[in-house]
Design a binder for these strands. Structure first.
Length: 556
RNA sequence: GCGCUUGUAGCUCAGUUUGGAUAGAGCGCAGGCCUGCGGAGCCUGAGGCCGUGGGUUCGAAUCCCGCCAAGCGCGCCA
């Protein structure tokens, strides 16, 4: 249990006791919120419970605080309980307790920060899911970083996580792509052909057609047109998926499951879902199409599931897919990460899930807002039409995977962001990525030195850590589980980079004020423990963000 | 027009879920710290009508309503 939860319990008990003893009148029990005071002098934790109680008890908040505080005594962890206007109770942690956390961290090792708030629940994070018709571009990259980080953190928080990529291999976009590839293939063979009007204009299609030619020569021409196009389609999808998989790997993004949309039709899933909807009275036929009557669930308008041509829409696939997630595979919770351009789709899918008899609360859809690129102080304009979007590969080639991940993570998903390529590339103090990684390299450097000098932390007495800079660092280390909890609850990973920056700051400050390896053998051992623990925690934080923790920095 | 998201220091952003203490951080700027584990570091300082106008409240960056500005969406595309 996190320390602030222990404090919250103690406060709850004190309130109950105060009421028993007639110190405070009976009344409702509000949520006890334990937070951090705005300034460190005030202590490590605070509760505003007296302020919240004051009105219903008809007592001045400060009076409530004093009466409650009189029942709160120092403990193993808490050194001081104090009351502050207008009605806060503040708690200061004991230095001994803090120091002992260093040993606790060393013992926990790479599991420090793990929690069990997921209680083994099965959770699926579906992200990226770019159509297999072209490369992953910057907008998708944000979702990739977000999703993979969220999956890491949820795993640390005690969920069983499945990372999934949904392959849209059934829709009309795939057909348009296949026709484009076919046209480029013909052109590669010197035959007259032109790109269809809805075709894909990117250079990568031309390149792939060249590959197709060197692999198959003219042999595809011998097949019937139908057969040849099917073959080209299947080949093209696989080729694009391979490219996407490789690109994502360079960013440190991997998936457990690559789920095919087509499979929903090959199995009976799609049929089953349509039956459920029909039985629930959610289907209507109008104008030759089959509609999902989402207006019955408070939606603005109904949505087409099966076109008048008889072909199902992507929305029908989505219905079957979500049924598969929740019912066939039985995930307790599902998180979808989509781009801002899918915003309008959210209420529809929520309504659909509800219509399928699934509690929509179990589905969370995170919308990642748009990304624009800036270089040399100017926006990088991209034309989708001409296939001139900046791709994930371009971005990673230019700024590297760590900077790429950090910058995407640092901004909350809700807000549009500007990705400053020049800043991300800069190897200087302007770039927080280097500030943080440099802290890790410094830690590693000290540990290296210690090994060379034969100094070991074994038997080090952490109670020797008493300096403000030492304790400030410990306070940061102890914070990681709380950060994991926050991210797992809010699904907002942008807290991680901020924490990493704070941790690095605390370490740099400690480093600047105190030397670790000195003639004082006992103190050296104690500080070495602190450095070991710091390295462990920073490395874990970076790992959760999918970033590397360098042992040394290249001199720039 | 309607819906979703955003607007906080010169710049990039936290803080808004659960209303509470003097609104925070990084960069940039001004000044200071280099004989020791890597100075890609450390310290000090200046810098804010929290988009705007109302409202609720003992108390609002945070909740409610209006307005302004930016992005995205509102197809038998995905």
């Amino acid at each position: 249990m996190l320390i602030q939860e222990q404090i919250a319990q103690v406060v709850r008990r004190a309130l109950a006791l105060a009421r028993e003893q007639g110190l405070l009148p009976a009344g409702p029990l509000p949520d006890v919120v334990v937070e951090r005071p705005p300034r460190p002098e005030l202590g490590d934790f605070a509760t505003n419970l007296p302020l919240r109680l004051a009105r219903s008890l008809r007592l001045p908040p400060l009076e409530v605080a004093q009466r409650l505080a009189s029942l709160l005594s120092p403990s193993e962890a808490v050194e001081r309980v104090s009351v502050a206007p207008p009605g806060f109770i503040n708690f200061t942690l004991r230095a001994d307790w803090l120091c002992q956390q260093v040993d606790a961290i060393l013992q926990a090792g790479a599991t420090w920060g793990n929690l069990d708030i997921g209680r083994g629940q099965r959770i699926q994070v579906e992200f990226v899911s770019v159509n297999p018709t072209g490369p992953v571009h910057v907008g998708h990259t944000r979702g990739a970083v977000l999703g993979s980080t969220l999956a890491n953190v949820l795993g640390a928080a005690g969920y069983q996580v499945v990372r999934e990529y949904y392959i849209n291999d059934a829709g009309s976009q795939i057909d348009a792509f296949a026709r484009s590839l076919w046209a480029r293939y013909l052109q590669a063979l010197g035959r007259p052909a032109s790109l269809p009007p809805d075709g894909y204009q990117g250079q990568y299609v031309v390149d792939m057609a060249q590959e197709l030619r060197s692999q198959f020569g003219e042999s595809l021409l011998a097949l019937g047109e139908q057969e040849a196009q099917e073959k080209v389609k299947a080949w093209g999808v696989q080729r694009v998926l391979t490219m996407i998989r490789e690109d994502l790997q360079r960013l440190g993004v991997e998936f457990d499951v690559w789920f095919s949309e087509r499979s929903l039709y090959e199995t009976s899933c799609y049929r089953k879902v349509m039956d459920i909807l029909r039985q629930g009275g959610y289907l209507a036929e109008r104008e030759g199409a089959v509609w999902f009557v989402s207006t019955a669930l408070g939606e603005d308008k109904d949505n087409v599931l099966v076109r008048s041509s008889g072909l199902p829409t992507y929305f029908a696939s989505d219905a079957a897919y979500h049924y598969h997630k929740f019912v066939v595979r039985g995930f307790d919770r599902v998180i979808n990460i989509w781009g801002a351009d899918h915003q309008g789709h959210v209420p529809r899918v929520k309504a659909m899930v509800q219509a399928l008899g699934i509690d929509p609360q179990r589905l969370t859809i995170i919308i990642a807002q748009m990304v624009t690129l800036k270089r040399g102080g100017e926006m990088v304009r991209a034309s989708k039409r001409k296939g001139e979007l900046v791709t994930l590969r371009d971005l990673v080639d230019e700024v590297g995977p760590d900077a790429c991940r950090y910058f995407f993570l640092a901004r909350s998903a809700d807000a549009q962001m500007e990705f400053d390529l020049d800043l991300a590339k800069k190897q200087s103090q302007e770039n927080p990525v280097y500030y943080i990684q440099y802290a890790h390299a410094r830690m590693a450097g000290i540990l290296r030195q210690a090994r060379e000098r034969g100094v070991e932390s074994d038997g080090g007495d952490v109670r020797l850590l008493r300096e403000p800079a030492e304790l400030a660092l410990v306070r940061r280390l102890v914070l990681l589980p709380e950060v994991v909890q926050t991210v797992a609850r809010t699904l907002e990973p942008h807290h991680l980079p901020h924490y990493a920056l704070d941790l690095a700051t605390a370490f740099h400050w400690f480093y600047d004020n105190h030397r670790v390896l000195t003639e004082d053998r006992a103190l050296s051992k104690a500080r070495l423990k602190l450095v070991e623990a710091s390295r462990l925690v920073l490395a874990r934080t970076l790992a959760l963000m999918g970033m590397s923790a360098p042992e040394r920095m290249e001199k720039g």
